[in-house]
Design a protein around this nucleic acid. Structure first.
Length: 291
DNA sequence: GCGACAG
DNA sequence: ATCTTGTCGC
């Protein structure tokens, strides 16, 4: 019901009322459909290393035939403060080990699907997938070997967050990076912070996120031992948790890994620039907050 | 039943 | 997600 009421795109559709009168709200139908789709896609999830390259930090040698990880992608979407349906999606590709941005793709668009906790992928995955597919179809030389996603992987109520969703659809190795903890299986962010403060963990950069069930959902990660607020890393697709953490370590200059941080900054900047352009086009010669 | 809930 | 100023510290 909240979904219908808060959705400008559907609030004037009379057919919605019939569904609700029959006791079957369209929004609960939608959530059922989405849940079913997640369960179906989850069957294709690959939770181990499944790629031709190797990590630069790999202890094994560098023999013939196996290339080293060089191009790491990052995706994020920023939203307008005035109209939350106006968004800018960004894909960046960074070169290792320099962390130099070698590619940058932006897309300004309007998102109709609302954000529902546990169903972020249905809002954000379509655009990101489109950008990825275009780059792949163009045989772009910087097409990423692994993609870092601003959102969780299997650290999710049904074990299939945005990073998994996007990974499966794009058939690309992905890593989920959350800036906040999605509370699942008894996991709690204050517990994670307490763990980092324990004497026994004072030298640990990584804390396993083991839920009440005993399952390891991912890790809490702090870029420095003095960092207060960790990020939450979980496997998305075609990569193990250990390898995912290695990639995060290689790309972390600040709290948020560079690929995601760059995508975040660039999408936000592009959005700002375009919104100013729109205001000018509409003839608003004065757009200060005070008159 | 009530609250909590990635971006 | 977004709003929002300065401030403390390496």
């Amino acid at each position: 019901m909240e979904l219908v009421e808060s959705s400008p795109a559907t609030e004037h559709h009379p057919e919605m009322n019939r569904e609700e009168a029959s006791g079957e709200s369209s929004s609960s139908n939608q959530l059922e459909n989405w849940t079913e789709e997640q369960d179906q896609l989850k069957k294709k999830l690959i939770a181990h290393d499944d790629f031709p390259w190797k990590l630069p930090s790999s202890p094994t040698e560098l023999p013939q035939g196996s290339e080293t990880l060089k191009y790491v992608g990052g995706v994020d979407i920023s939203f307008s403060k005035d109209d939350s349906s106006v968004a800018c999606a960004c894909l960046v590709v960074l070169e290792l080990p320099s962390l130099r941005v070698v590619h940058n793709e932006l897309s300004l668009l309007r998102l109709q699907v609302p954000y529902v906790p546990g169903f972020l992928a249905f809002r954000e995955a379509p655009v990101l997938l489109q950008i990825l597919e275009k780059m792949r179809d163009d045989q772009h030389p910087f097409y990423p070997q692994v993609l870092m996603v601003d959102g969780n992987g299997i650290l999710h109520p049904r074990g299939f967050g945005l990073a998994c969703h996007l990974g499966v659809l794009a058939h690309l190795p992905t890593i989920g990076v959350g800036k906040n903890l999605h509370h699942v299986d008894g996991l709690d962010h204050s517990e994670v912070r307490r763990s980092f403060l324990l004497k026994e963990n004072e030298d640990e950069q990584v804390i396993k996120l083991v839920g009440n069930s005993g399952f390891t959902w991912g890790v809490g990660f702090r870029p420095t031992l003095s960092s207060v607020k960790p990020i939450y890393v979980s496997l998305g697709h075609r990569i193990s948790l250990d390898s995912a953490v290695e990639v995060v370590k290689m790309t972390c200059k600040y709290r948020v890994p560079e690929p995601i941080r760059q995508a975040d900054m660039r999408s936000r900047a592009y959005l700002q620039k375009h919104l100013l352009g729109l205001l000018k086009d509409l003839g608003h010669t004065e757009w200060k907050t005070e008159h």
